[in-house]
Each structure stands twice: as C-alpha cells, then as structure tokens.
Simulated assay, not measured.
Amino acid sequence: MPVTNPWLAGLAPKKRLDPERLEERILNLLSSQNMCVLATAGPEGPLATPVRYFHLDFTLIFTAAASSPKMRNLAADPRVSVGLFAPLVGQASSRGAQVFGRARVLSDNDPGFAHYWPAIRWQSDHVERSRSLDEPPSGPVVVVEAERIVYTEHWLRREGFAPRQFWTRSKG
C-alpha cells in the first residue's frame, strides 16, 4: 500500500531546533491564526473559552467584556493556558502551541495599555456592526506574556527534528 508521508512512521526524532528557528516557527503560527482557546480557573472550576487574539511578539492580546466569566476567573487566578492551532488536514499538517503565562487586565488608563492597544484591530468589528470608526471601543485589554510555549509541528519530523519543541522566555 502506498504511504503519503513515510517519514511519519516509526519513532519520532528527539532533535531540538535552535532557539532562533523555533521562535521563527512560533511567530509564524501566531501570525497566521487569530483564534485560540483560553483556559482559566475560578471558583466554579475550569473554563475553556474560544477567543480571537492578536499578538506582539510572544505576547497574546484580546478584549473581553469586564463582566464575563473568563474575566471573573482571571481576577481570581491570573494563570492561564492558551491553546492555538492551524487547521488540521492530517497528521503531517498538525501544528499548534500551548502557551502558558499570567494574564494582566489593562484599562485605558493603566501603564502599558497604549503599547498594546494598537495591536487590537477593532475597526472591522465596528464596520460589521455599523458603528462609527470615530468611536473606538472602551473596555479592558487582556495581555498574556508567554512564559513558556510547547510548540508542536509534525512536519519537523521530515527534517529529523522532534515534532514537539519547548520554548521558555529568557530571563532578562
């Protein structure tokens, strides 16, 4: 029987990518997707919520209604896990990341808000809802600076690299 991707057979390689190449692949994934699943924990237990994200380097950014369950959970415990992935066609196309960090909720008068706000592309939402582009939305911005990332890409096996790679933010 013909096999489409024979390099997927057998044990996965264990070789690690160099840090620069791994960062490039992670940034490519972050830039080519816009949806993720945010996992939080709160008084009523875990909550996994699909959210649209934006990013600046290895920092994920999203907006949310201040009264939402995810925002209540973040107030109780800022530790989060974020899962994001590219569309899956088959094992060879498997590509995604688990991002771990702490969420910070910033309002428009908080230091740092002005740095992250330009990454939010709110204009298309306003057009879709027939709202004026002269009135930007208000509300909090949630910022998750990645502390570590588990990156998975099975195509790496073709080049002899492990399909699961690990990134950790440098101290400094």
Rank of each mutant, 00 (worst) to 15 (best):
P6N: 00
P6R: 00
P6G: 01
P6L: 00
L8W: 07
A9H: 07
A9Q: 09
A9I: 03
G10A: 04
G10F: 03
P13L: 01
P13E: 00
K14C: 10
K15C: 11
R16G: 13
L17G: 07
L17M: 09
D18H: 15
D18P: 15
P19N: 11
E20D: 10
R21D: 11
R21T: 13
L22I: 08
L22K: 05
L22N: 05
L22W: 06
E23N: 13
E24A: 12
R25F: 10
R25K: 15
R25Y: 13
I26L: 11
I26S: 08
I26H: 07
L27A: 04
L27S: 03
L27N: 03
L29V: 03
L29W: 04
L29Q: 02
L29C: 04
L29H: 02
L30T: 00
L30N: 00
L30C: 01
S31L: 10
S32T: 12
Q33R: 14
N34V: 07
N34D: 12
N34I: 09
N34P: 08
C36E: 04
C36F: 07
C36W: 04
V37E: 07
V37T: 10
V37P: 04
L38E: 00
L38N: 00
L38M: 02
L38K: 00
A39R: 03
T40I: 01
T40K: 01
A41F: 14
A41R: 14
G42W: 05
G42T: 02
P43Y: 11
G45K: 04
G45H: 02
G45R: 02
G45E: 03
P46I: 09
P46R: 09
A48K: 09
A48M: 11
T49H: 06
P50S: 03
V51G: 05
V51F: 04
R52D: 09
R52S: 13
Y53F: 11
Y53P: 04
F54G: 02
H55S: 08
H55K: 06
H55L: 05
L56S: 11
L56A: 15
L56P: 14
L56H: 12
D57M: 12
D57L: 11
F58T: 13
F58S: 10
F58G: 08
T59K: 06
L60Y: 06
L60A: 06
F62D: 00
T63F: 05
T63Y: 06
T63M: 11
A64T: 03
A64V: 00
S67N: 12
K70F: 06
R72E: 12
R72V: 12
N73D: 14
N73T: 05
N73C: 05
N73F: 09
L74N: 02
L74G: 01
L74D: 02
A75R: 08
A76Y: 14
A76N: 07
A76F: 13
D77G: 04
